[in-house]
């Protein structure tokens, strides 16, 4: 069915005039905070902006923090956050709840995006090269000159840990972030990393050993500087 009509005939005023009208008052809030991620996504995809808002507020930290912990760059983490949620807005219907939770899906997208950007920035350590972890030299950024008594403030402790994690080879770093910072099960981490559970277990074990070495070295170096 096709109709033709002049907008002025119907409304009594030109279309362009209507365009300058202000946005209408928001509707009363609906209780979305208790909905599951998956339900929020479903409602978001049917056009509910509030569902998008709630879902973003709930899961933005997961995405942003994973990207930040993996890259050490707030700018990159923000880019990744934007890319991941943009992808959810545009291609969220591709999410299959039968294959796992939305949070896991988001982490998978985040991980892929982080790796892509890190590769692009050439600060990438080959994921499959298991020999990369032999380099245990301490990055200069791990050495702190600011606290001679080694009683690190919270910010300094955070920064020491952040730098030690960033000094890990990428394939160890990601498994440590997923399992020890995001508290994922080995199975979920294996799903995100597309590798066997046994690989997650062995990489995490190795990552923990390397991290201990790096933290120990950082503190010893700091002690030597003080002495």
């Amino acid at each position: 069915m096709v109709w033709l009509v002049s907008s002025t005939q119907r409304t009594g005023k030109p279309v362009a005039h209507c365009l300058t009208m202000r946005r209408l008052a928001p509707l009363p809030a609906r209780p979305l905070a208790n909905e599951s991620d998956e339900e929020l996504l479903r409602r978001m995809l049917t056009g509910e902006e509030e569902a998008f808002e709630v879902l973003y507020d709930r899961r933005e930290g997961l995405v942003y923090q994973f990207a930040l912990r993996m890259s050490g760059s707030a700018a990159l983490a923000e880019d990744v956050t934007q890319d991941v949620f943009l992808s959810l807005i545009r291609h969220g219907h591709q999410f299959d709840a039968g294959r796992g939770k939305l949070a896991k899906y988001l982490l998978g997208m985040t991980r892929n995006r982080v790796l892509t950007l890190l590769q692009r920035e050439r600060s990438f350590v080959a994921l499959t090269d298991e020999d990369e972890d032999e380099d245990l030299s301490l990055p200069a950024s791990l050495i702190t000159h600011e606290d001679p008594l080694l009683k690190l403030t919270r910010a300094e402790q955070t920064e020491t840990m952040r730098q030690a994690i960033l000094a890990l080879p990428l394939h160890y770093r990601e498994v440590l972030v997923l399992c020890n910072l995001n508290e994922l099960s080995y199975e979920d981490a294996a799903g995100i990393l597309s590798c066997p559970v046994g690989t997650v277990r062995s990489r995490l074990n190795r990552a923990r050993g390397l991290l201990l070495d790096k933290l120990r070295a950082a503190r010893q170096t700091a002690e030597q500087i003080v002495a």
């Binding site: 978001m44 973003y56 923090q65 840990m161 952040r162 910072l181």
Partner: peptide, 29 residues
């Protein structure tokens, strides 16, 4: 180390992207 990692996760749990990220996403939505 487990305890240190938990502490680190707790201390960095409030790190969030800048508000403009959400604004731009809202526009895209």
């Amino acid at each position: 180390l487990r305890q240190e990692l938990r502490t680190y996760a707790d201390w960095t749990a409030a790190e969030t992207a800048a508000p403009r990220v959400k604004q731009e996403l809202r526009t895209a939505f």
